[in-house]
């Protein structure tokens, strides 16, 4: 606090210099802790040793990539995960946007409860959502198919779209819609030329988040899937099959690429709102 006048002018840039070394150490340690496991999976994908998991790997190979590429089961699981992700994302986009528009535009009784209800599937442990949906499908006599998986995913994906769209609506002025109508645009034209471009990147970001969330989900999926195997479920099953262990590493890289790349892109799209909304 000795450099008060200077730090007032440039509070952030001068700040790093007085960061205590203990804090620096804690931050550096935290970053290593967070990233090391991801790097280790990548390293093990090139491991020549398939029977044991000892570190460090004796030598490196690309063999497991070609084994994974020719495994039909992996590609079936991958296709299923993509299909479920697309269905859940489409549902979440429609429902989340509608809910955000309703919450943003009006004050009404029970408004708080509605936003709480939308958040609830994320706040409650996934296993509750899973077993609740299983109980309901069981009572209703619904068979477990790809659709029950997608319905389960959509239920917790709504909130990420909702949060992103609501944040964008709060940043934009309601009067642009009125201005558009006053200038003679029809409802459709206003939606097409004013509302949609304004929400565009928020929808894209929310949609990608929802897709990544669905693509990655395993807990709710175990309860809403019948014989369907999504990619995370394939990994889970394979852990008990020593023979497919080396291939898991390769699949892990594929899964990371599918979820992380859209997220980094979504992050760029929503930077002005202070980054992505809602961690999950």
């Amino acid at each position: 606090m000795t450099s008060a006048p200077r730090s007032q002018a440039r509070p952030r840039s001068t700040a790093t210099r007085r960061t205590p070394w203990l804090l620096r150490l804690a931050v550096a340690g935290g970053v290593v802790f967070l990233l090391a496991p991801l790097l280790i999976v990548v390293l093990y994908a090139f491991n020549t040793e398939s029977a044991t998991q000892t570190f460090p790997p004796p030598s490196l190979t690309l063999h497991w990539f070609s084994v994974a590429a020719h495994d039909g089961e992996i590609w079936r699981a991958f296709r299923l995960s993509v299909q479920v992700g697309l269905m859940a994302t489409a549902t979440a986009l429609v429902l989340g946007t509608l809910a955000a528009a309703a919450i943003y535009r009006s004050r009404f009784f029970g408004r708080e409860s509605v936003s709480f209800l939308i958040l609830l599937p994320l706040a409650l442990p996934g296993i509750i959502t899973g077993i609740a949906l299983r109980s309901a499908f069981n009572l209703a006599g619904v068979n477990f198919t790809i659709f029950t998986v997608a319905v389960g995913h959509a239920t917790f994906c709504v909130v990420v779209v909702y949060n992103n769209v609501l944040a964008r609506l709060r940043r934009s002025s309601a009067s642009i819609v009125e201005a558009s109508m006053d200038l003679g645009a029809s409802g459709w034209q206003t939606f097409r030329y004013i509302v949609l471009p304004n929400l565009g990147t928020a929808l894209l970001a929310g949609g990608m988040l929802a897709f990544a969330l669905s693509f990655d989900e395993i807990i709710v999926t175990t309860f809403t899937a019948g014989s369907q195997r999504t990619l995370p479920l394939w990994i889970y099953d394979s852990l008990n099959r020593p023979r497919s262990r080396p291939v898991i590493n390769v699949v892990a890289i594929l899964v990371m690429a599918v979820t992380v790349l859209p997220i980094l892109f979504a992050q760029r799209l929503t930077r002005r709102e202070g980054g992505l909304n809602a961690t999950r």
């Binding site: 998991q53 693509f215 990371m256 992380v260």
Partner: peptide
């Protein structure tokens, strides 16, 4: 750097720790 591990698949992270904590692991 925070978003990478947050969004890298749950199953992948658990599996990685399975490797890290195993006998003779990292």
């Amino acid at each position: 750097l925070m978003l990478l591990p947050l969004w890298a698949s749950y199953m992948v992270k658990v599996y990685s720790w399975n490797l890290i904590l195993s006998k003779g692991g990292v």
